[in-house]
Design a protein around this nucleic acid. Structure first.
Length: 556
RNA sequence: UGGCCGAUGGUGUAAUGGUAACACAGGACAUUUUGGUUGUCUUAUUCAGGGUUCGAGUCCUUGUCGGCCAACCA
């Protein structure tokens, strides 16, 4: 109850405000939104924001959301993308009312075009692409009429029919709206409605050789579906005038377009074109490479749907250019995983530690909690042996001030095990530390500690003999700069060369039970997710995100 | 020399003419068998000038800065 009240008190964003007004004034009884991806790439975090917006609105207000594929350009689109898009939306936890395709409307759209011709509002243009561009003018200079602009309705009808029948090669003719070549909005300067494209379409096959342009498909599709609020990003703002013009001339259901600012994340790029380039040129392993800001990449990285939806809620929606700190995304996944991820101990960069007063060959089974945040999360068994691995960085021969890990003569606790004291440092011929010898304090076992000793540091550890080797993929940000797309030159020059580091790590045996996609907290190291590359003999884990680390932050 | 849109802490989002708020990030302390978590405290904000008003982040105006617009892409 109380939380619901709180929710209602939360102020509305500008779109909710519009909808709230439309509903209260009785303009609509319910709203209809749609998520309209083009199936020419995988969905990314920016799309997630749009999905949360469109579907979120119809969760909050009466109405529903359709999924509509904007598949009007057969040369770039593919069913592979259709499937991945559907999968990602479902994974995020949203359900669409109707699954639709702009290509379902090709017949209707053709009819609309004929209607415009009959009204003297469209004509067939023989100009080449270059000629059209030339006559179009520039943002500061008006355009000029095409010499084909005043063909008779009959001639236009005949030519358009021939275009459809396949009488002309690609690019030979277009159908254009007849609006105003001097219009200040470039999109109103006789926009192209249809182009000739002898291409196989992923759904209509070879049935068509002319395809509608975005502007002649999107608004009409919205209208046919009775979409009330058609949300798109800011760069489509100039299209709204054409959107409204077409609806008015055709006299069809008046959907309305509203624009919001697309979300940009720093240290990555969110442009399907650029992401496709990274995939095609092999800078990443695929669309779902864990470094990619795609939904599938984030999923493989170990992000949960909840964390992504939460992130989208937190960043909200606005109308200004923005660059969101990826740190917020990381906060969201840490917060989620902290509550749900099972704890395990894994040493990523091993240093051998010998407990000199512990018998050789003996295995003592200890227990440790699976998740301190969950009351009844149970515990698992941990094998403790004479030889252990600890993290290299958890030992310093000459400790810095305020370093409370292991150092000569110092004591630390081994998590869920004993307090140990460092007695001796062993080095190789090069002076590298290869081993530390310690002794354990007799009465200090976790849960049965009567030693009375208090130590500041607690280290994670694994048994050298009982642990399992793991491949661990340590991911870092894809780009070295915040805004790679906005830099001079090729954005790929700014890729972070150290975005992936692969190490062999040693994990406690309980990790053998892990399943693909399962998320863990590797104690003191971060959150990790088992990768699908794992086999029975080789377990692979992706680092989702590190833990917050105040010690590292303080500069050590 | 055009048109359209925008400008609130470092970042993102609120405040709908009436005390500039929330989250993240930053800092400090406490707690902690994870330098995690948690708790408490804290730093920092209305692009600039002019106007309307008892009162302006909000309205008007000028300027500045930023974004978008000249694909047979969406």
């Amino acid at each position: 109850m109380h939380t619901e009240e709180k929710k209602e008190e939360k102020s509305l964003n500008f779109l909710e405000d519009i909808i709230d007004t439309d509903l209260r004034t009785g303009k609509y009884d319910q709203i209809v939104t749609r998520f309209p991806p083009e199936p020419n790439g995988y969905l990314h975090i920016g799309h997630a924001s749009s999905i949360c917006l469109n579907f979120g609105l119809t969760k909050k207000f009466p109405g529903y959301t359709n999924l509509r594929f904007d598949d009007t350009n057969p040369t770039t689109e593919d069913t592979e993308y259709v499937e991945s898009i559907k999968n990602d939306i479902k994974w995020l936890g949203f359900e669409w009312k109707n699954e639709l395709f702009a290509s379902d409307y090709f017949d209707t759209l053709y009819g609309y075009a004929v209607e415009l011709i009959n009204k003297g509002l469209a004509y067939v243009d023989d100009s080449t692409s270059e000629e059209i561009a030339l006559l179009k003018g520039t943002p500061t200079e008006p355009g000029k009429d095409s010499p084909y602009r005043n063909r008779s309705i009959e001639e236009n009808l005949e030519l358009f029919a021939q275009m459809k029948a396949g009488a002309f090669p690609d690019g030979a003719k277009t159908l254009r709206a007849k609006i105003d070549m001097k219009h200040t909005n470039m999109l109103m300067r006789d926009p192209i409605l249809y182009r000739v494209k002898h291409a196989h379409h992923h759904r209509t096959g070879n049935a068509w050789c002319i395809y509608p342009m975005y502007d002649f498909a999107h608004g009409q599709s919205d209208s046919l579906e009775k979409v009330t609020h058609s949300l798109c990003t800011l760069e489509f703002m100039p299209h709204r005038e054409l959107y409204d013009w077409l609806i008015k001339q055709l006299g069809i259901y008046p959907s309305h377009q509203y624009e919001f600012a697309r979300r940009n994340l720093n240290y990555t790029v969110t442009s399907k074109r650029k992401l496709l380039q990274l995939v095609k040129e092999g800078h990443v392993s695929g669309w779902d490479d864990p470094r990619m800001p795609t939904i599938s990449g984030l999923r493989r990285r170990g992000y949960t749907p909840h964390s992504i939806v939460d992130f989208c809620d937190r960043i909200g929606v606005g109308k200004r250019e923005n660059m969101i700190d990826v740190g917020l995304l990381e906060f969201c996944i840490r917060e989620d995983l902290n509550k749900i991820a099972t704890r395990r101990m894994v040493v990523l960069d091993p240093l051998k530690l010998v407990i000199t007063n512990f018998p050789e060959g003996k295995v003592e089974w200890l227990t440790s909690e699976n998740n301190p945040e969950i009351e009844n999360s149970g515990e698992r068994n941990l094998p403790f042996t004479r030889e252990l691995y600890i993290e290299k960085e958890d030992f310093m021969e000459n400790p810095a001030k305020k370093y409370f890990r292991l150092a000569p003569g110092k004591m630390v606790r081994l998590k869920s095990a004993y307090i140990i004291q460092c007695d001796e440092v062993v080095k190789d011929g090069d002076g590298e530390i290869v081993q530390v010898n310690c002794s354990l304090i007799e009465n200090s076992r976790s849960g049965a500690d009567s030693s009375g000793i208090n130590v500041k540091g607690t280290l994670h550890w694994v048994s050298t003999s009982e642990s399992v080797p793991l491949e661990v993929r340590l991911y870092d940000r894809l780009f070295a700069v915040e805004d790679a797309a906005g830099q001079e030159g090729d954005f790929k020059e700014y890729l972070n060369p150290n975005s992936l580091q692969i190490v062999t790590a040693y994990g406690e045996p309980a990790l053998k039970e892990a399943t693909v996609g399962e998320g863990f907290q590797f104690l003191r190291k971060g959150y990790f997710s088992m990768d699908r590359d794992s086999t029975k003999d080789k377990l692979v884990f992706n680092r989702t995100v590190t833990l917050r680390d105040n010690w590292a932050k303080s500069g050590k």
